[in-house]
Design a protein around this nucleic acid. Structure first.
Lengths: 334, 334
DNA sequence: CTGAAAGCGCTTACAG
DNA sequence: CTGAAAGCGCTTACAG
């Protein structure tokens, strides 16, 4: 077996209480004692058992993070930010892949409770009532990322999706586009689907551009659906000059389908994406997009959560700023 | 406080031992007792405390997974596979982002020890002696992914990089290419850098194609380095007809740089990548590549690790098969 | 079939 | 400055 505090105590000829004190820098021992203890620790290669500690402290220094899809570029950027900050503050992170399914999410929530995590980060999904109740009963803080809830007391980290979408469309308008299509997200997604669509409509209205419903199609945020959406638009609204896609993946799908149809971007068609994934800079031509600082958002969420854990204060929601990254998929119409 | 086994015992009017028995389905109680206990559990909303359990069972049902970079597409595909399988077997996963740094890796290893994880998955980095010693002293199993070690007893899950690279180059040769450049990985990376380079050289030799050292340049597996590598090749070896890149990201960098130079792929230049990231199917034109089943590899690693944890058997290394995914970046020379 | 008790590896009043 | 003891929430012989 690995050595325990008992072995250290024996070797250093002190009580386990004293060993615990020097381990935790609590003071209340002579320098000589401290040295003897530290020596024993070194000699035995002793490492404290965080499980035993957790049991008594009721703190596990562990965060649970829930994603609908860990392997998406979107989630993993956030995860990176979370993990990095958590680690710097001596917390570990337990990842959970919910597949966006209610049943799986609930199972994970139970699990996180059993494992006594100190806090939860919940990303990119609607916080359903059932989830909320469960988390509430766990009596630990939670922070939402790129999401929101009906419960005002729940802190979140997100961009202003509506404003960001509006900015994207205005960017197009300012470059002379009037026939602007949108590939929106999933039809009844209130999280990011609806606000981004809203932003689109709002920008058009603001500039008194009539809304043509042929110009609005829906995808599911993924690549394939972007390809399909372009096919649809080409059939029903071939006069468009620009497309605003509600995700980079869909925008890249447009690029891909456009190339198959012999359409040149941006000469024949301008495209602006949404998210600012690393991906968006790797495609040809590099994608102009509305970027959200995902890694930073992960960091902020972790920071907020840890503060809340350690102080007991309930945190506020935070809106971080988006930015338009100008690359080469939007042409100015003259 | 959340209810404990004590509260359940009190409410059901039995001892905590009995509650523990029904909780763990150990038998040795009457049906009536079982019902009373279960009712109390339901009524109190009792959930066992995994930390207390872990302390006594010396099992935490937790796996530690170390990646040099969690947010890379490569790592997150693996993570997905690991997480999914682990979850199906009731294990959680703790993610660690080492940045490929020795210091950080060691710190994580300590952490995983303190947190008493049951096993470790170590991905995409060389298992240094120091790491090996630490893990060995933890007395828990470890499985390597896309990596290897000098220690024969350490199981791994990987493709045969040399063979895969050889296949990629032969694919090019079979399509009439003779002037084939390679963008290799980091110069002294023995893990995947060297074997892939080896495969390249071997394929050329096998087909009696003279080796031209201008044709071999190095990148660091990332996108940017692929762009730069093409620049270099264009200067020093403009006569090449095809490029084998040791990673999809670098291959995509080639696509990007090629487009900037007005070079058409595959008309002016053929490109084959390596990894089979989802990314490779999203670019224009879709990238032909040697695919490794990353998610599957994650799954197998988790499976192997858990078997080893639960049976105590030491596992064997596993070579999974790669495959060439034909898309549109390689042209047949006539 | 059931319970009292010891113990997992720690921390923390309490007493000296 | 230091130690004995209780206790965190469980599991598991042992005894009946």
């Amino acid at each position: 077996m690995n050595p325990t505090i008992k072995d250290v105590a024996k070797m250093a000829n002190v009580s386990i209480a004293t060993v615990s004190r020097v381990l935790n820098n609590l003071g209340g021992y002579s320098d000589k004692t401290k040295q003897r203890v530290n020596e024993a620790i070194r000699e035995l290669g002793y490492q404290p058992n965080a499980i035993a500690r957790g049991l008594i402290n009721k703190r596990t220094q562990t965060l649970g993070v829930l994603f609908p899809n860990v392997s998406s570029s979107f989630s993993s950027d956030i995860l990176q930010g979370v993990e990095d900050f958590a680690h710097s503050r001596n917390y570990s992170v337990l990842v959970c892949n919910t597949d966006g399914e209610e049943k799986r999410t609930m199972k994970y929530l139970q699990l996180l409770r059993e494992k006594q995590v100190d806090g939860i980060i919940f990303s990119s999904s609607m916080l359903k009532d059932e989830y909320y109740e469960t988390i509430k009963s766990m009596k630990i803080p939670v922070v939402l990322i790129s999401s929101q809830s009906n419960y005002p007391a729940i802190p979140y980290v997100t961009i202003n999706d509506r404003l960001a979408a509006c900015d994207a469309v205005e960017y197009l308008i300012n470059r002379g586009h009037r026939k602007i299509a949108m590939i929106a997200g999933t039809e009844n997604d209130v999280l990011t689907g609806a606000p981004r669509m809203d932003g689109y409509l709002r920008a058009l209205r603001k500039h008194r551009i009539p809304i043509d419903e042929r110009y609005l199609v829906h995808g599911d945020f993924r690549f394939e659906s972007g390809c399909k959406a372009l096919e649809t638009l080409l059939r029903t609204a071939p006069d468009i000059t620009a497309i605003f896609a509600a995700s980079d993946e869909m925008a890249i799908g447009v690029l891909s389908a456009a190339s198959r149809h012999g359409l040149k971007v941006p000469d024949d068609l301008s495209v602006i994406g949404f998210d600012g994934l690393q991906l968006s800079n790797m495609v040809v031509p590099p994608l102009t997009t509305v970027s959200q600082p995902l890694q930073e958002m992960g960091k902020i969420a972790a920071e907020t959560l840890i503060r809340s854990i350690e102080t007991g204060e309930t945190a506020e929601g935070i809106i971080v700023s988006h930015s338009i990254v100008e690359r080469q998929t939007v042409r100015t119409l003259t």
